[in-house]
Design a protein around this nucleic acid. Structure first.
Lengths: 172, 172
DNA sequence: GGTGAAAGTTTTTCTCT
DNA sequence: AGAGAAAAACTTTCACC
């Protein structure tokens, strides 16, 4: 017989992630905006010296709050002139069918985002392509034949007024 | 009277941006994936020594192909549990009205993306919020009262199967 | 356009508070 | 937890091919 714990652990079972203090938030906001800033520059801005600043950054990375760093590229300069949103409805919403669709589209490099939504539309996809012809080919040969697809409605992006990575750290 | 040009400039008026060679593409793909990699590591991967690699990166930055670097943060860890897509149609599609709407929503920190689309839906917005209550408040007090709004249909993101920043550099 | 070495910073560790 | 000093690594410039 396994003895029951007489003293439940204090707090939750999840490691007590120290709630982010204002310095951590400033670090996150700064790195989200300028991902390649040097640690000494970052330390100066948040009012620390380099070593403790670096320790905080490493902690934030290891805890998964910072997932990674990415260069933001100009799609047009790489020949990707077309961005399309596709609203997809499936024939079946059984979990296995949802997963099968997700696995299919996740493997397609043209699909940059795939979000499952509530309501009549099951998924919204953000798709990039070199030109309209390449997109049409992608649509008919890759997306529409995906398992369990009911309907696909696509809308071309005419222009992008705002595209900010991440979340507003400043908001409480 | 202004003399007409007798010899039109060779090629286009845009500065002849050297088409990206395979090394540049590898640099871009690498930095898009690992934005904080050191230059020596990057140089090693693309088969160069550090100095020419750094020169290429600087050229790519100055030409605008690399727009910037950003840390990718975990929205949930910052308390942003809610991501919503809003499909907005305006009452008027005159350019001045489109711009007025864009200016309004661009200033809202909860709006992370705003794309103008063709078809019945004029704009798709990606919105983040701390919780449903905060989102409802945002919707009724910030988005719906935006100038010229006809209809707003919102869909909650249930889960995100794929979210890759940028474009597939590897694709021709 | 690339290489190799040298100079200047930055990162990172260590010790102390 | 943060500060200051020291060692290691990286960035950046320069002369050369």
């Amino acid at each position: 017989m396994i003895a029951a714990k007489t003293h439940p652990p204090q707090g939750t079972s999840v490691p007590t992630q120290t709630p982010l203090d204002p310095i951590d938030r400033t670090i996150l906001a700064t790195l989200q905006d300028e991902g390649r800033i040097t640690n000494v520059e970052l330390a100066g801005r948040v009012g620390l010296t380099a070593p403790p600043c670096l320790r905080r950054v490493r902690t934030l990375e290891e805890s998964g709050i910072i997932r990674g760093y990415h260069a933001e590229l100009d799609p047009a300069a790489l020949g990707f002139g077309i961005t399309v949103f596709a609203m997809v409805s499936l024939k079946s919403q059984a979990e296995a069918d949802l997963l099968a669709f997700e696995e299919h589209v996740t493997a397609l490099p043209e699909v940059r985002e795939c979000h499952m939504l509530n309501g009549e539309i099951d998924f919204v996809l953000k798709i990039v392509a070199h030109d309209l012809q390449a997109f049409q080919l992608f649509l008919t040969s890759k997306l529409t034949p995906a398992p369990n697809v009911g309907s696909v409605k696509t809308s071309l992006t005419i222009r992008t007024a705002k595209q900010v990575p991440g979340v507003p750290v400043d908001l409480g």
